[in-house]
Design a protein around this nucleic acid. Structure first.
Lengths: 220, 220
DNA sequence: TTGAATACCAAGCGCTTGCTTGGTAGCGTT
DNA sequence: AACGCTACCAAGCAAGCGCTTGGTATTCAA
């Protein structure tokens, strides 16, 4: 259990070594991969992500989202063509950020087994809102997206999944099929969303990660 | 907690050997645990289950459900107090039936490991619409239920889960915590809903069940 | 023959929804 | 000073929603 929650560094610090979440966002914004969270569009995306996660897409109204950032509902449509476009935007941003974060964590890990553990921790943190706000929307609200929007998000999503599959394959897994292992693992991890409370006493997140790792890579 | 597999005796279908699904339904109807599927209420529940599974609760209108059984939308409210009551009813019926079915399968299996496999097969079949229509609604639409409705369904749901936990405990599992194992397993199995196609060539359902069993009870 | 119960129709109410329209205030550029 | 761009407001439309109301046809027991 070395480690592993990196410290979320202070606001502006240009540090050497491990970049903070905020620095990662800035870098991705600079690369044009993420929307600036301080722009009107970015603020709307963040507010929508929060609400979609809390109440679900269908029960979140554009009026809710607008109120969250302090504008009127109609004004939203100067930034997005439709409500679904907002969901689509949220999913794209979440996917890009989660992938970048996991890439970092893998690069920082040592052995293949530690890399797999890093992925598990990463995704658990994301699912439980400790690192990637809105991540659970990707799973829960997938059906709220139209087929063509699904296609667009799926391309980014596959980058994320490919990283997982590579790590699993390198770690050597019990069922000898990285894609299958990932699918079972993904299900197990996302479902923790409904029962696991990372802040409660009892099972901690790193402990849970170890249990899962033990299951999917028993050679420990 | 020991226990608990009793066979739910039939009110009506007195056959020897293994009862068919239809006989099981009849028995449960006779015991007052299930709504007669030929009654107006039963027909509505079945239609609603089908639609909720296809399009989701939020995007299914009471007009859709009414049209499915050939009545007008207003007439629904002579059978249910609200749309949510329909969802609640569907979930209760699905849970009761799935539990009875799994009980049968467990009773029919030999060793504890075979019992665990029977549970896995049972749930996979349920999830993929091969045995318990509407089962996936239990997972996907859980948040569409009001807190008090959730409580009511949860009581039935816990019977179902207890059966699982007993079987897992008896089989001896890798992480020595039946509740945790069940949760990870539940996530893995329900998530197959999004990717596994039981009718396609490639991985078959029994094969998938074996892979999962191997993972959660490696002592094979 | 009556009366109550069941199952449904016909019509529509009141509300919420996503989204549109026309206009304006502020700001940076030329 | 004039322009254009961004960001937003004020007002409201059309459609769809869950649900209500008042009434009718059928059935069956008393």
């Amino acid at each position: 259990m070395s480690n592993s929650v990196q410290q979320s560094g202070g606001g502006a610090g240009k540090s050497q070594g491990v970049p903070s979440p905020r620095q990662l966002v800035s870098a991705l914004v600079a690369d044009g991969l993420l929307t600036d969270p301080d722009s009107p569009r970015g603020r709307l995306l963040n507010a929508a992500a929060r609400l979609f996660e809390q109440k679900g897409f269908a029960r979140t109204t554009v009026r809710d989202i607008a109120a969250e950032v302090g504008i009127l509902s109609g004004s939203i449509f100067h930034h997005f063509a439709s409500k679904e476009e907002i969901l689509c935007g949220v999913m794209r941003e979440v996917t890009v950020f989660a992938r970048a974060r996991m890439e970092q964590a893998v690069a920082r890990a040592g052995t293949p087994r530690q890399q797999l553990r890093a992925c598990i921790v990463c995704e658990l943190e994301a699912i439980h809102g400790l690192a990637v706000p809105g991540f659970s929307i990707l799973v829960v609200e997938w059906r709220s997206l139209s087929p063509q929007s699904q296609k667009r998000v799926l391309r980014l999503r596959d980058d994320y999944e490919q990283l997982w599959r590579d790590v699993i394959a390198a770690a050597g897994n019990p069922c000898e099929d990285p894609a299958l292992a990932r699918r079972l693992l993904l299900g197990a991890l996302t479902h923790t969303h409904t029962w696991f409370k990372p802040r409660s006493r009892g099972l901690s997140l790193p402990e849970l990660a170890d249990r899962v790792l033990q299951l999917f890579a028993p050679a420990g």
